[in-house]
Computed example of a mutant assay.
Amino acid sequence: MIVDAHVHAGEYYRHYSARFAEQMTASTELAPEDLSAPEAKLLAEMDAAGVDRVFLLAFDVQRVEGFSVPNEFVAELCARHPDRLTGFASVDAGVPGAAGRLREAVTGLGLRGLKTAPCYLRMSPADRRWYEVYETARDLGIPVLMHTGYTPSRNADARFFSPLLVEQVARDFPDLTVILAHLGTPWTRPCVDLLARHANLHADLSIFGSYQPPATVARALAHARDSGVLDRLLWGTDFPFASMTGSVTRMADLARDPGLWPHGSDPLSPREYEALMGGTAARLLPLAAPHATPTPPSTRRLEVP
């Protein structure tokens, strides 16, 4: 079982703005038009890479960026492919009623996690406006995937890039499952140390595992193993920002090449590799649970927080 724990839904022009796509792809070999994951492209990429399931993310940055990938859109995709797609809602705590929208996305649309974008929304993840959202996620028993680390979006606020801002959230919500996206790149070592201090924290390797030199990734994984948190890391790509096929190949090579690993550290064992590539994700969100069929918006009763 291979699970990509960080995949974006949405299509260029239909959802993402041209300006945002240009900024996000400027330092890559991708064209802005490549920032698109239509249904057929997503499923074909999964098949080519041997990926069994993905965590598919909505993305609510309407207030700052002027666009969103709606929860309803993600829910419809997941309902068509319940055996392959697990949907995450997205809400903006800077807009009143965010906790109610999250509850509706889970109980009404069948989404099974929450994706937040604090720096894109120019808010700290520890901003108290998020706390009702976190309380709702905790009560619903869903994980919260938080963007941490750098982003090339010019509207994002760099004051809120650091993964260490999540420490207060981990203290205040010790029973909330949190996944730190991108291993906090470039603050990967502090991110691993943060996981070691808080048992409810996890992290995904999206972007970091796909673009950093393999030896750099191996050093981070070795540090995670030495810190006792390797079993709380999840492989992910950030597709369509990165290729699933390329990342799977990189991880397989890294797992078996001792020359990439720091002196005194062994490559990943089969058990460690299986956990990283899907086992930990399956533990956080049991993958056999069925996806709800979305209720038509006209008949859906909205919850008011």
Rank of each mutant, 00 (worst) to 15 (best):
L195P: 14
A255H: 06
I179D: 08
Y211C: 04
A224M: 14
A281M: 00
H198K: 09
G228V: 11
P213I: 14
W187Q: 07
A196Q: 13
S243A: 05
G209H: 11
A181Y: 10
T249E: 14
D226H: 06
A222L: 10
L234H: 06
A218R: 02
S243M: 02
T188N: 10
A181L: 06
G184K: 02
M251A: 12
L276A: 05
S243V: 04
F173E: 03
L201M: 08
R283S: 13
A220Q: 13
P190D: 05
H202T: 09
L201T: 07
E272D: 04
S227A: 14
D172P: 00
P213F: 09
R271Y: 11
L234Y: 04
Y273R: 06
T185E: 10
L180C: 03
H223P: 05
F239Q: 00
A170H: 03
S210Q: 11
F173S: 03
H182Q: 08
L205M: 15
C191G: 14
I179Y: 08
D172E: 12
M244H: 05
G209I: 13
A252H: 15
G278C: 07
Q212K: 04
L176W: 09
L268R: 01
A281E: 08
R225K: 07
D231V: 07
E274G: 10
L176F: 07
A252I: 12
T237L: 08
R197A: 13
L230E: 13
P270M: 11
W235V: 09
F173I: 04
H223T: 05
H198E: 12
L260Q: 01
S227E: 15
P213L: 10
A203H: 08
D226C: 05
W235F: 14
A255V: 02
W261A: 00
L176Q: 12
A203M: 13
T177S: 11
E272H: 06
A170K: 06
P262K: 00
V192G: 13
W187T: 02
D231C: 08
I179T: 14
T188F: 15
A170F: 08
A242H: 10
L201Y: 06
T237G: 03
G259D: 13
L233R: 00
R232A: 06
P213H: 11
D172L: 14
T280D: 02
G259I: 03
